[in-house]
């Protein structure tokens, strides 16, 4: 195979893997924002917590990886439920700034809680067997983790699409984003729907965190911060509040990040985030509402 082509393919695999994880994380930002107009800064920490849950489950119980990953994601979803109930529901109707500050507080509580109980040191997460292996397609080396990441993301996105367009509860989730009072008039318990939205978003973030830990084999209590900010930016580029936008934005960010690394001279690649953020600013200057977003009222 032509070396330029194989390099390009190699980078594409990278971009899709990272993009998948950003997309999974961006969805939670967008769902919550669409309903509560809340930028939930604790969302990245739910991502991190998902990785810790799986790590602990695998270490202290005899559970297998697949069941452990599922349990970890469910536990991350439950953390989302607790955050909603404890930090956001009591503030329903308060100014948006108050909710935002509350989410910052939750973020610090989670990070410091993990540091307190498990220590600040990075944990290594060596996945045994199949996921640790790679295969070659021509000259392109593809890890099984990369394939798994993309597949898991596609499956979850399909399930989410089905849920939000074909089930009453999923449609109600989109309806609450349009008008909370109208939902109440239909007999919909909006507190329940909001809780479901947090669970769904946090479950997805948990899966993202687990995939991230599997890919990089190492994580620490602050692992959620940078992916959290990037996924938030992905949601913003895509048009915050739009689920399709979050997915597109997440993948776009992954692609941009890899492109910048490939195109920049090697001595600048350490500054790749600077270039990615510059592109973000340009995007938002041209299209302030994001790619899929509705124009700002």
């Amino acid at each position: 195979m032509n070396p330029i082509l194989s390099n390009a393919l190699q980078q594409l695999v990278n971009a899709l893997t990272i993009g998948s994880i950003y997309a999974l994380l961006a969805i939670g930002f967008s769902i919550v924002y669409s309903i509560l107009r809340l930028i939930n800064f604790a969302h990245g920490d739910v991502f991190m917590v998902g990785a810790y849950f799986v790590f602990l489950l695998l270490r202290y119980t005899g559970i297998n990886l697949l069941a452990g990953a599922f349990a970890g994601a469910v536990l991350a979803g439950i953390v989302g439920l607790i955050i909603e109930r404890g930090a956001f529901r009591p503030l329903r109707g308060a100014p948006e700034g108050n909710l935002f500050i509350s989410s910052l507080a939750v973020s610090m509580i989670i990070q410091n809680g993990v540091i307190m109980f498990l220590g600040p040191q990075p944990q290594s997460f060596k996945v045994p067997g199949f996921l640790g292996e790679t295969f070659k397609l021509g000259n392109v080396v593809i890890s099984n983790v990369a394939v798994t990441t993309v597949l898991v993301t596609i499956i979850l996105l399909a399930v989410l699409l089905f849920f939000t367009t074909r089930t009453k509860m999923g449609i109600a989730m989109r309806a609450t984003a349009n008008n909370l009072n109208a939902c109440r008039l239909m007999g919909i318990n909006v507190n329940l729907i909001i809780a479901v939205a947090f669970f769904v978003g946090s479950f997805m973030a948990g899966v993202g965190g687990i995939l991230w830990a599997t890919k990089y084999s190492i994580f620490n209590p602050l692992t959620g911060v940078v992916p959290g900010i990037k996924a938030f930016i992905g949601a913003l580029i895509g048009g915050i509040g739009s689920l399709e936008g979050a997915v597109i934005g997440g993948f776009l960010l992954g692609i941009l990040e890899v492109l910048v690394v490939v195109l920049l001279p090697p001595e600048l690649s350490a500054y790749r985030d600077v270039f990615v953020f510059m592109l973000l600013i340009v995007t938002l200057l041209i299209r302030p509402q994001g790619i899929m977003g509705k124009s700002v009222k």
Partner: peptide, 16 residues
């Protein structure tokens, strides 16, 4: 109305 939802979805919400 739920402006971003289709006519059908609005009706489905009425029958929640």
């Amino acid at each position: 109305l739920f402006n971003d939802l289709t006519v059908r979805e609005n009706l489905v919400m009425g029958a929640y």
